[in-house]
């Protein structure tokens, strides 16, 4: 049986911090950094989904509410946090994940000149990549960010296409 090693989340927080800082050095344009983070997240997501499925043995989603719950449990498994699922759109094709705490931003203060930086933009990428591998296309973006003095961090997830197998 595989032993799951737990690591201190601070190590992860700091590693992610140095990744973002390095990207800011490499690309002077903040928009490019946002884009790179999303792309990296996507590449992580298309691999991470297999780990999630192998570990949880969960089946296919036939409703976006199932998807929301599975994404929530994914956050629990990989980041140790449980975001709340809120703000369902009337059509049931859009919801928000609200983070009270976010391990990625634990020690972070955003300088004024980086006000356009989406610090956690790796997360939307991960979600998009992971869902794409199970034949579901979603769009995902931040609407609120604690780093930008909002009360919570809110990640909006929108269903865009389901590819029937």
């Amino acid at each position: 049986k595989m032993v799951v090693l737990r690591i201190n989340s601070e190590l992860f927080t700091l590693t992610y911090g140095s990744l973002v800082a390095q990207l800011l050095q490499d690309y002077e344009n903040v928009e490019d950094v946002n884009k790179q983070l999303e792309r990296m997240g996507y590449n992580i997501g298309i691999r991470l989904i297999e780990d999630f499925l192998a570990r949880t043995g969960s089946g296919r989603c036939y409703d976006f509410r199932d998807t929301a719950e599975k994404i929530q449990s994914g956050f629990k498994i990989f980041l140790g946090i449980t975001p709340s699922i809120t703000n369902w759109s009337p059509g049931g094709d859009e919801f928000s994940l609200c983070f009270e705490t976010n391990p990625l931003t634990e020690f972070v203060e955003l300088p004024d000149n980086y006000s356009n930086l989406k610090y956690c933009n790796i997360l939307p990428g991960v979600l998009r990549g992971a869902c794409e591998m199970v034949q579901m296309e979603i769009a995902c973006w931040f609407v609120q960010d604690q780093l930008k003095n909002d009360n919570v961090t809110e990640l909006r997830v929108k269903y865009s296409l389901y590819r029937c197998l």
Binding site: M2, E50, D51, L53, A54, R55
Partner: peptide
């Protein structure tokens, strides 16, 4: 599948 998720994909 577990092994694949761990040792190939990671």
């Amino acid at each position: 599948y577990d092994l694949y998720a761990d040792y190939a994909l990671k």
